[in-house]
Amino acid sequence: MSTALLLFESTHAVIKAERLLDEKKIPCKVIPVPKHISSECGLALEVSTEVRAEVVRALKLAGVHVTVSAVP
């Protein structure tokens, strides 16, 4: 399964996003931000690329600022 990496500006935003995706039954995984990616926070979320667009829409709707890493 190919995955997309979601980056956030704060720990608060990561956990808020995780809770929101849990509520929507969208699988996600909290992971450390890979070393080769410039990070604003130590945590990131990994989701399937199949749901990436849906996830970004949902997070933006909830007011959570998210960046999708081009290098998962």
């Binding site: 704060s10 720990t11 608060h12 956990i15 809770r19 909290v30 450390p32 130590g42 945590l43």
Partner: peptide
């Protein structure tokens, strides 16, 4: 810690602190 690291116990702390905030 909270918000400084990404290993298992740090993630548990982050979830708990954010749940407290909520």
């Amino acid at each position: 810690p909270y918000g400084r690291s990404a290993y298992g116990r740090a993630v548990e702390v982050a979830r708990t602190v954010e749940d407290a905030r909520a």
